[in-house]
Simulated assay, not measured.
Amino acid sequence: MNRRFFIASATALSLTPIASYALSTTEAKSLVDRVVKDINKVIGSGKSVSAMIRDFEGIFKRYADVTWIAGSALGPDARRMSSAQRNTYVGAFTKYISGKYGRRFKEFEGGKINVVSAKAEKNYFRVEAQATLPGQAPFALDFLVSNRTGKNLFFDMVVEGISLRLSEKSEIGAMLDKRGGDLDAFIGDLQKLG
């Protein structure tokens, strides 16, 4: 229990995606079908890890609510940022996430992700997929989709019940705390990790 936990709890509702009645189950599934198609293409491309990371960054920018995910990962401290800091942070966060998860694409070689179903859940849609890797049991990979920005985008991926967004929130918070809450130092270090 620390300052970050209490502030994050108090502001959680403000960071929850806003309900949108224009998005349908079919549209949410269609978005994830496109995401999965692009990811499968990268997996099967035989490209180098650095090329896969660039491709993943493009997928992330195209289909994810990058600004919201970055803000949510930082939590209430995002409100302290100037416009310039926010832009730099979102760019650094995008490269950091793309590099971190793009490097894992090599593990998916010879595997495939398939969309299974989609359903409305609270104020968003959950699109369930299944990832199959060579020599491993299939595992669940869910995409949470909203159109709170006016565009259909995913705002989280849940792997076997573990939210990647919330996992990143914990790591990003620890990085900022380690730098005594200094946003510029944190952003600079995050840029180096991307």
Rank of each mutant, 00 (worst) to 15 (best):
R3I: 13
R3T: 14
R3V: 08
F5P: 01
F6D: 09
S9W: 04
A12G: 05
T16M: 14
P17K: 03
A19G: 15
A22H: 02
L23S: 02
S24K: 07
T26A: 12
K29R: 03
S30L: 09
L31K: 04
R34V: 01
V36D: 10
I39E: 06
V42W: 01
I43C: 00
S45M: 02
K47W: 05
K47A: 08
S50W: 05
A51G: 03
A51V: 10
G58C: 03
G58K: 15
I59G: 05
F60L: 13
K61L: 15
K61Q: 15
K61I: 12
R62Y: 12
T67P: 02
W68G: 10
W68C: 04
W68L: 12
I69Q: 07
I69Y: 03
L74H: 04
G75M: 09
P76D: 14
P76H: 06
D77R: 09
D77E: 15
D77N: 13
A78C: 08
R79Y: 11
R80M: 04
S82T: 01
Q85S: 08
Y89D: 01
Y89N: 00
Y89I: 00
G91I: 00
F93D: 06
K95Q: 11
K95T: 06
Y96V: 02
R103L: 05
R103D: 02
F105E: 04
F105L: 15
K106G: 05
E107Q: 09
G110E: 02
G111R: 08
G111N: 10
G111L: 09
S117I: 09
S117R: 15
A118G: 15
K122W: 07
Y124F: 15
V127Y: 13
E128K: 00
Q130T: 12
Q130V: 15
A131Y: 11
T132S: 13
Q136P: 02
Q136M: 13
A137M: 09
F139H: 15
F139E: 08
F139P: 06
F143P: 04
V145G: 14
N147I: 07
K151I: 04
F154S: 00
F155M: 11
F155D: 14
F155N: 08
D156S: 09
M157H: 06
G161E: 00
S163Q: 12
L166E: 14
S167Y: 10
S167R: 11
S167K: 07
S167W: 08
K169F: 11
K169P: 06
E171T: 11
M175T: 07
R179Q: 03
G181S: 03
D182T: 14
L183F: 00
D184A: 05
F186Q: 07
F186A: 12
G188P: 00
G188A: 12
L190A: 01
L190W: 05
G194I: 01
